[in-house]
């Protein structure tokens, strides 16, 4: 069982972070009337970059060289905690979702520090934005996950994703909505951030990694896609109607379909929406917090807690 889930996890790590962005890009291409790149194009891009030697700016220090390693390592560790494929992380422990958020926080810190290390005003701008928006997104994430934790035993991700009673009717949809909006903030998708633009003044994530190249860039991009996969995985696990204890394989399959559906929805959003103005993004994050708060209010009035 452990070997099987490890294999499954490895397969997920190797495939999903390339497939989901591929699906998003394909959806955008279809909507725009183009044929689009193959689904696994991000995989070929990454393997091409991995063979290339990075170039380092003379301004940078060891922090810049360390950053891609830390970002990738933290995201990989986070993938062990999150229910990427259903059922919960490979290493479930009490309140592992707190560790999930904080491990990703370490990666974010190095991502922004590397941007400041280049001494470029554009990347400084990106660093300030990334750090500022995380201040608004982090509490929203805790509000949503904390609400889900109310009904669970020891607050492992696996238990969080198993809503029961009438909680499932009201709280879960709200939390799912909150998680989807958080995915758009945290994974730098529209309407928060435009992953395709090359105009430095309007970007967040892309401008942060402007100076990374070669293998370093590949690590950064893979980590970003993996983070998208993790958020999509959490969301899929939450709305997955099939319990992993009952039918593990079917549940995994349903989760996979759900994750692809989420990618399609993200792609549709990107085709239909324009990016928000920068100063509206904190309000967007606060809206998530409001959604989480309403869910919390509903959850605390549950009879079994009171």
């Amino acid at each position: 069982m452990i070997v099987a889930s490890l294999l499954l996890h490895g397969l997920g790590l190797a495939l999903l972070p390339f497939l989901l962005p591929g699906v998003i890009n394909r959806v955008k291409a279809w909507w725009g009337g183009r044929r689009g790149a193959p689904f696994l194009q991000p995989l070929w891009d990454t393997s091409r970059l991995l063979g290339k030697q990075p170039v380092y700016s003379v301004t940078t220090t060891a922090v810049f060289r360390l950053a891609p390693l830390v970002v990738l390592a933290t995201t990989l560790v986070a993938s062990l905690l999150a229910p990427m494929l259903p059922g919960g992380g490979l290493l479930p422990f009490a309140n592992d979702f707190v560790a999930f958020a904080y491990v990703l926080g370490l990666g974010r810190m190095f991502l922004t520090l590397a941007a400041l290390d280049t001494g470029s005003p554009f990347e400084g701008m990106g660093a300030a934005r990334e750090a500022t928006f995380s201040v608004f997104a982090e509490p929203a994430l805790f509000l949503v996950l904390g609400t889900l934790a109310l009904g669970s035993g020891h607050g492992t991700f696996a238990e969080l994703m198993r809503p029961h009673g009438w909680q499932a009717l009201l709280v879960t949809p709200l939390c799912a909505l909150g998680l989807f909006l958080l995915l758009q903030i945290e994974c730098a998708r529209l309407p928060i951030d435009d992953p395709t633009t090359h105009l430095e003044l309007t970007m967040i994530h892309e401008v942060l990694i402007l100076d990374h190249s070669g293998a370093d860039l590949a690590m950064m991009q893979y980590a970003a896609s993996l983070k998208l996969t993790l958020y999509a995985g959490v969301l899929a696990a939450l709305v997955n109607p099939i319990r992993v204890d009952d039918q593990p394989l079917l549940s995994a399959l349903v989760s996979l379909v759900l994750m692809l559906t989420i990618a399609v929805i993200v792609g549709l959003f990107e085709s239909l929406l324009a990016r928000l103005r920068m100063r509206w993004i904190p309000q967007f994050a606060m809206a998530v917090a409001v959604v989480g708060f309403v869910a919390l209010l509903l959850a605390t009035t549950q009879p079994e807690l009171g």
Partner: peptide
């Protein structure tokens, strides 16, 4: 091989 050095991309 030692990484090539360059200036920061100044847009």
């Amino acid at each position: 091989a030692p990484a090539p050095a360059h200036r920061t991309w100044g847009c």
